[in-house]
Design a binder for these strands. Structure first.
Lengths: 229, 229
DNA sequence: GTCTATAACGGGATAGAC
DNA sequence: GTCTATCCCGTTATAGAC
């Protein structure tokens, strides 16, 4: 009876601490302290630290990704094989994250920061904990994008999808709210305006034609006048 | 004499380990082992773990940011107050990172991964270690962008600049090379093609008009029929 | 299911010889 | 400048009482 409460209190506390300090930076003792439980309770319920992170993450990610796939299914059914519009695909990918982030933030939760942070944990940890949650979503959305953007090589679609994920995770960490420059306004990342802005940015970026292979990293930048070095 | 060598060996080893495992996940003992030096040598040369991170980061970031500012100066001089084109500003911001990343990667260095990772360290650490390196660059580029995009509110410019940073840092971590789906090609993030793709994506995204305030996060997504793309 | 107690180890930092 | 040795604390994980 109290076991369920205990388990959820541990999950809540761990979610917050992992989000704020990362995996290595969070001690199990700090979790027990924040949750008001005993150290042994964590090992009883989860077995080990890494398994705790796995459950913390899966608790939110699983329903979120189901919702993403549900929306994509709906779009593809409606499209009847004609290819789903890019904006709709991106919307189906991004909106469930934002919904969940917003709803949980209202309860004081920090899922948004966690998902952003977990992406930058050491690779081994990510593969052990996070990868399973995203394999299907990645494949399904990549396929949908490739069909929608038939002119774009799959490798390029994949690359641009990584840009989308970069924008998403960086926004979710909300780091710039404090690390950014205050004079330009501490806008909330999860506001509706911000989501619309993100969607417009990403859709336009995704559609950008590849430039006529002009400059390369090796060349200098295209400054006309001023000399350079 | 050997002191300089020792100090640089420590910096090199610490750069690699911080990049791979993060700050909290890296022990000073692991650094000494990788560098082949004594534990006390780190405290002699740097004083404390956080100061070591600061020096590791500043060693690369300082010249990189000077180069960014030099390029921006050049552009603004050439523009004679007429406003620098968006693409050139983004180029000046992004290319020095890519140059440095590519040059160091050729020596087996991992600066790219470090800069990507450091951005996702706990906020307090970022403010203590990283913020100083970027205050001037942020202000200068924000000003240039706001002048170039005179129609866009500064808060929106700031928001979109965060999107740029999200794409940049996520690309630099190179995480998707392993966590992504292998069948779509393990493209190198630092290839010239990838840089051109990023620049085209970001410039187009930055120019995207704000949508006519149609949907909001609270509303449902805009599935009409199945029409167009 | 929850507790106390402790094992077994690794962490950052420092003193002081050389 | 570089070393050894050590302090002192925190870490994960487990054993076993209740």
């Amino acid at each position: 009876m109290a076991s369920v409460e205990t388990k959820e209190r541990i999950l809540d506390a761990a979610e917050r601490l992992f989000a704020e300090r990362g995996f290595a930076g969070t001690s199990l003792r700090s979790v027990t302290k924040a949750a008001g439980v005993n150290l042994a309770a964590i090992h009883y319920h989860f077995g080990a630290k890494e398994a705790l992170l796995r459950e913390v993450f899966a608790r939110r990610a699983a329903p979120m990704n189901q919702e993403r796939l549900r929306r994509l299914d709906e779009l593809e059914t409606a499209a009847q094989g004609r290819g789903v519009p890019l904006e709709s695909i991106l919307d189906a990918f991004l909106r469930p994250v934002m919904h969940l982030q917003r709803d949980l933030a209202a309860e004081g939760d920090v899922w948004g920061r966690l998902i952003g942070r977990v992406y930058s944990e050491p690779v081994d940890l990510v593969e052990a904990v996070l990868k399973d949650q995203f394999v299907e979503v990645s494949r399904r959305f990549m396929d949908a994008l490739s069909r929608s953007l038939a002119d774009m090589p799959p490798a390029e679609v994949h690359r641009r999808m990584q840009f989308v994920i970069g924008v998403l995770t960086h926004s979710l960490t909300g780091l710039h709210r404090r690390a950014g420059l205050p004079e330009y306004g501490g806008e909330n990342v999860d506001s509706d305006d911000s989501f619309e802005s993100m969607l417009a940015f990403l859709a336009a970026g995704f559609r950008a034609p590849l430039r006529s292979n002009g400059a390369s990293v090796a060349e200098e930048m295209p400054v006309k006048e001023a000399s350079e070095g």
